[in-house]
Design a protein around this nucleic acid. Structure first.
Length: 361
DNA sequence: AAACTCGTCAACCGCAAGTAC
DNA sequence: CGTACTTGCGGTTGACGAGTT
């Protein structure tokens, strides 16, 4: 159909608004209401287009706008809403009184997005970019992937800590031994989970001894990695696989097997998560949470999701409604931006592209 | 002190949905 | 029903200030 410009470019001022223009616009709207934005500039004596006036009013001059730094609660809300709504800033803004979509968008792009990236979380999908727990769960659900995983780990032996090598060897041996038994265990766990829904009972004792070895090893590997050569790498984090992503705030820790059927993963397999939400997302209650809370000394003031950071904790996907099979690694990182980041210093490391883990992923 | 880099955020642009005629 | 117009939205730009070299 084609459209003309929203206003006549001739004689229309652009750029920053002056206090005088603000006064004119504010006074006019308070007296007359904005009415038709297109005719407003002429009526108000402004050399601006209606669009510019509307933007100035809605984003800056409106009396109910809250200015200043975003509070922790607001930031939490934005992250949660973004994980559900994506870049629908106006919808997010509607749930944050006094904040405009533009302000939220800016804050996201300049603060939150960078922080998430730094913490290894894809700001688009909210999935961990590379998450050891997902690697392990993927491997456990799909034993064939153990080949790749062990290859991955094996190829980098020179860089790795002995604990990681032990992890590799265990994975290899798990692959070589009875994978049917492996799947059987997973299926049993699935059944048990369905029975014990909302009651996260530690089930490690029922795992094969190799599982126990694995669980014992992972924290050590993470600690090793967090102080090892990984942190010196500057290679960009692996991009998350966002294809087919369907935001699902109720995602629980699960993984896919090779047939793409979902196999809920036993939450007791790995250590407790860095993140969990207790309000807006569905997560199984966990008897160890109070202990962790006490340990970390952190609790969100708004009782939103709480984030735990301990030295040897593997994150799970409880805050990651992204693709369950998205590649992500997660080992500790130190973060220094500000105090708030203390809680989000997650276990993280970056894998150089030269490792060639595409096949694995 | 100047040049440069980086972070922030107000403002602009183009598109699409909604509405009036 | 089709067209013109308005409004709202999300992506992007660019000015500006602070910090660094």
């Amino acid at each position: 159909m084609g459209r003309g410009p929203c206003c006549d470019k001739n004689g229309v001022k652009k750029g920053p608004w002056t206090p005088e223009e603000d006064d004119k616009l504010t006074t006019y709207i308070q007296l007359q209401g904005h009415g038709n934005w297109r005719s407003l500039p002429k009526n108000a004596g402004l050399q601006r287009c209606g669009k510019s006036c509307r933007l100035r009013w809605t984003n800056y001059l409106r009396p109910d706008i809250k200015r200043g730094k975003f509070s922790f609660e607001e930031e939490e809300t934005i992250i949660q809403l973004h994980s559900i709504m994506g870049n629908r800033w106006s919808a997010i803004a509607a749930r944050l009184p006094g904040r405009t979509d533009n302000e939220i968008k800016n804050y996201w792009n300049t603060h939150i997005r960078k922080r998430l990236l730094r913490n290894g979380i894809d700001p688009v999908t909210h999935a961990h970019l590379l998450d050891l727990s997902s690697i392990l769960s993927s491997a456990l659900c799909n034993p064939s992937s153990l080949i790749s995983l062990s290859t991955l780990v094996g190829n980098t032996q020179a860089l790795l800590n002995p604990d990681i090598l032990r992890l590799s060897s265990i994975l290899s041996s798990m692959k070589q031994e009875n994978s049917d038994l492996f799947l059987q265990q997973i299926q049993e766990n699935q059944l048990r989970n369905s029975l014990l829904q909302n009651h996260a009972i530690p089930t490690l004792s029922s795992q094969p001894s190799q599982f126990q070895n694995l669980v014992d090893l992972v924290p050590a590997c993470i600690s090793a990695a967090s102080t090892g050569p990984f942190l010196n790498q500057t290679t960009p984090l692996m991009p998350a696989n966002v294809e087919g992503f369907s935001p699902n705030p109720t995602s629980t820790f699960s993984c896919r097997n090779s047939q793409e059927s979902f196999v809920p993963f036993n939450e007791g397999l790995v250590s407790q998560p860095c993140f969990y939400r207790n309000s807006t997302t569905t997560t199984t209650a966990n008897p160890t949470v109070p202990e962790l809370e006490e340990l970390s000394g952190f609790q969100s003031p708004n009782n939103g999701y709480r984030i735990f950071s301990t030295d040897s904790v593997i994150s799970t996907r409880l805050t990651s409604p992204g693709p369950l099979n998205s590649p992500s690694t997660y080992i500790n990182s130190s973060s220094t931006e500000d105090d708030k980041e203390c809680y989000s210093s997650l276990l993280k490391f970056e894998i150089p592209e030269s490792w060639g883990i595409d096949d694995f992923l």
